[in-house]
């Protein structure tokens, strides 16, 4: 589905989002780069605290500020930098050209407003629709996302809908103005598996019809495998591996990606013991100077603790941030590796 020759619709360059708190500066997102094309689904995956959600909020500048602040980098949307845009211009992008859906359908809808109004609001604002037209369009959107008797449902308030239906409403709301980018932040994490299957199917279907680019933020590698074209794996505020989905799963390069995949219980095979990753994530207030995974890495070498590796593209297009895949990883080290 990727259109390699086309210009990407969204380009994130060196994005840094830091939180300035009493404890110090938390470098939640610390220099990440990726791009998204029309019709592409990019997965951003990682464990809690890796910065994946902060990344998604940073794109739309929804970071609570203070204490959060975009400390550097660019977010280019169709060539314009969202980071330096005026608040008014930014508002016209949100929900109109770039939309977002969130993890908790239970709490992400306003409890005292009818769901139809919550969809219509965006239409009136961005598309200059009148009350009646906006309402009719929102009923149509509810129908599009597969909500039965949409006329009746539009008048109901969120508490009258199930979790799955609320997430459908969120999707209807996000897509009402036919955005070019949809950011889905853990869209199915709070849902049961059979409902998750419905929602993922729905997002895929609507993407095919409307052609938007999708950023899928998730901790679930299964969801990534089934929905994404490319995957960026995040660890401690960095992207440490970025590759087409098949390649990541078939041949993970970064030791963290390898560890992550190994620690998953497999549904189709039996294992006596699961692989684990020793140690814990470094504090975002006190990041190590070298590779952020070094202290937990089974292959660690002195160089890993001294200097942070760059995210470097290999000849097959896989990008990885690890000294093992650089020239500095000398024959001597490989030998030591083998001895271990």
């Amino acid at each position: 589905m990727m259109t390699e020759n086309n210009k990407p619709i969204l380009e994130v360059k060196g994005l840094k989002t830091h939180f300035f708190t009493k404890r110090g500066v938390s470098k939640a997102v610390d220099g990440i780069d990726f791009s998204l094309h029309k019709g592409e689904t990019l997965g951003i995956v990682g464990e809690s605290g890796c910065g994946k959600s902060i990344t998604s909020l940073s794109i739309l500048r929804l970071i609570p500020s203070p204490p959060g602040k975009i400390a550097g980098g660019q977010v280019l949307f169709k060539g314009k930098d969202l980071v330096t845009m005026s608040e008014d211009e930014m508002r016209r992008v949100r929900g109109n050209e770039i939309s977002m859906i969130f993890q908790e359908p239970m709490t992400s809808l306003n409890p005292v407003l009818p769901v139809g109004e919550q969809i219509a609001e965006a239409l009136r604002m961005h598309q200059n629709m009148g009350r009646k037209a906006a309402w009719e369009k929102s009923v149509e959107m509810l129908k599009l996302v597969g909500i039965p008797s949409p006329e009746k449902r539009a008048k109901q308030e969120p508490f009258q809908l199930s979790g799955g239906m609320r997430q459908r409403v969120m999707i209807a709301m996000a897509l009402a103005c036919t955005p070019e980018v949809l950011i889905a932040d853990e869209p199915t994490t709070a849902l049961d598996v059979t409902i998750q299957a419905q929602i993922l199917e729905l997002i895929k279907d609507l993407q095919n019809r409307l052609g938007m680019g999708v950023i899928m933020i998730t901790h679930d590698l299964g969801v990534v495998a089934e929905t994404c074209d490319t995957v960026a794996v995040m660890y401690a505020g960095n992207i440490i591996e970025h590759a087409p989905t098949e390649k990541i799963f078939a041949n993970p390069r970064h030791p963290y990606t390898q560890g992550l995949l190994d620690s998953l219980p497999k549904i189709h095979e039996d294992q006596e013991e699961l692989q684990t990753i020793e140690g814990s994530v470094p504090s975002p207030y006190n990041m190590p100077a070298g590779c952020r995974f070094a202290s937990r890495c089974p292959h660690q070498q002195p160089i890993c603790h001294e200097k942070q590796p760059e995210l470097i593209e290999q000849n097959d297009g896989v990008k990885v941030r690890c000294w093992m895949y650089t020239d500095q990883w000398t024959a001597k080290m490989v030998k030591e590796e083998a001895v271990k």
Binding site: L60, L62, R91, R92, V93, R94, G95, N96, S99, M100, F102, E104, T107, S108, L109, N110, P111, E121, A122, M125, H126, M170, M173
Partner: peptide
């Protein structure tokens, strides 16, 4: 601080 306020912001509400 609620999620639905964040949703409203993400929608581009003034």
């Amino acid at each position: 601080r609620q999620d639905y306020i964040r949703t409203a912001r993400a929608k581009g509400v003034r």
